[in-house]
Computed example of a mutant assay.
Amino acid sequence: MNRKQKKELRQRQSTRQLMGIVRVTPHGVMTDSGERVFFLIQPDNLSVLSPEVIRGRVRSLTMLLSTQPTLEILALDSRESFQRNKEYYLRRLEEETEPAVRELLERDMAHLDAIQFSSASSRKFVLVLPLDEKAGTDESALRQLEKAICDHGLRVRLAEEQDVKRLLAIYYRQDLTTEVFRDFDGEEYMAHG
């Protein structure tokens, strides 16, 4: 297959095909190599914890990963980037001669800085469990693993389908604002019969 044919094939592929996802499952995604189940971690604010407590959390996570060697950690930045907006304001400030407009531009930049500072710790941490293709998803086994992870001192919950779609949106599009993800465009307007 030549380069042009490969490009045409890629252009005809769906988004899921390009991402290597066969389908979204109730708690993860199915890929050609099997299912990947997601557990969402509720992170702690480390700035208010003592060094001893932080060391204990690290030990607990280390123990968890040693007892569950197939678990992987995924860290996503779930905050919006204001860099392009800030660059725009800087360009406008260089061009602007009107003092009142310059003051408004400076206030807008300060507001963006405040928002960005307040969301600096907006990270999503996910434990990913690759399942063997043959293993299949056993809901009770997943719930037992969820409890075992909680027993290691981590606040965690098994991801639901909307959580999985939100994680994919953050990972691939940095989409932080969509509330409900549909399987098909316009799905909400179709009559359910």
Rank of each mutant, 00 (worst) to 15 (best):
Leu46Gly: 08
Gln83Trp: 01
Thr62Lys: 05
Ala148Asp: 15
Gly193Gln: 11
Tyr172Leu: 08
Tyr171Thr: 01
Ile73Cys: 12
Arg155Ile: 09
Leu46Gln: 06
Ile41Glu: 07
Gly28Arg: 01
Leu90Glu: 12
Ala169Ser: 15
Arg155Gln: 14
Glu188Trp: 02
Lys4Gln: 15
Pro69Cys: 10
Arg166Thr: 04
Glu139Tyr: 10
Lys86Gly: 01
Leu167Cys: 04
Tyr172His: 11
Ser78Asp: 08
Phe82Leu: 02
Arg16His: 14
Pro51Met: 00
Glu146Tyr: 07
Met30Thr: 09
Leu61Asp: 01
Met109Thr: 01
Arg55Val: 10
Lys86Ser: 04
Asn85Glu: 12
Glu95Phe: 13
Leu142Gly: 09
Val128Ile: 01
Tyr171Trp: 07
Gln11Gly: 02
Glu52Thr: 08
Val156Tyr: 00
Phe38Tyr: 11
Gln17Gly: 12
Ile170Met: 04
Glu106Val: 10
Phe82Gln: 00
Ser122Lys: 03
Gln42Pro: 00
Met19Glu: 10
Arg182Gln: 15
Arg23Tyr: 07
Phe39Met: 05
Phe181Glu: 00
Ala100Tyr: 06
Lys6Ser: 10
Leu104Ile: 11
Arg123Asp: 02
Ala100Ser: 12
Pro99Arg: 08
Thr62Cys: 02
Glu87Tyr: 08
Val126Cys: 03
Pro26Gly: 13
Lys86Thr: 02
Glu35Asp: 11
Ile73Leu: 14
Lys6Glu: 07
Leu46His: 10
Gly56Asn: 13
Lys6Gly: 03
Ile73Ala: 09
Leu49Phe: 03
Asn2Leu: 08
Ala135Asp: 14
Ser50Val: 04
Gln42Phe: 09
Asp77Leu: 04
Thr97Ile: 02
Glu8Met: 05
Gly153Met: 09
Thr178Met: 04
Leu93Met: 06
Ser118Glu: 14
Glu139Ala: 14
Asp108Lys: 15
Leu9Arg: 14
Val58His: 02
Leu49Asp: 09
Val101Gly: 05
Arg16Val: 06
Thr15Glu: 12
Thr31Ala: 09
Arg57Asp: 08
Lys134Tyr: 14
Ala159Met: 05
Phe181Thr: 03
Ser60Leu: 11
Asp44Thr: 05
Lys124Arg: 14
Arg157Met: 01
Asn2Glu: 09
Ser119Leu: 08
Arg92Ala: 12
Asp108Gln: 15
Lys7Gly: 06
Leu131Trp: 00
Gly136Glu: 00
Leu61Gly: 06
Thr137Ser: 15
Lys147Val: 06
Ala169Asn: 10
Ser50Pro: 08
Ile149Gln: 04
Val37Ala: 11
Leu49Thr: 02
Val37Phe: 07
Arg55Gly: 14
Thr25Tyr: 00
Asn45Ser: 13
Val156Ser: 02
Gly56Arg: 14
Gln5Gly: 14
Gln174Tyr: 03
Leu112Trp: 02
Tyr89Pro: 01
Asp151Thr: 11
Thr67Phe: 09
Thr70Val: 13
Val126Asn: 02
Leu46Trp: 03
Gln174Asn: 12
Glu96Gln: 12
Glu87Pro: 05
Ser122Asn: 09
Thr137Leu: 10
Glu87Cys: 13
Pro130Ser: 06
Ala114Ile: 11
Ser33Cys: 08
Leu158Ala: 05
Tyr189Trp: 09
Gly153Asn: 04
Val58Pro: 00
Arg91Ser: 15
Leu65Arg: 00
Leu167Val: 00
Asp151Trp: 12
Met63Lys: 11
Glu106Thr: 11
Gln162Met: 08
Glu98Ala: 15
His111Val: 13
Val180Met: 07
Glu98Asn: 15
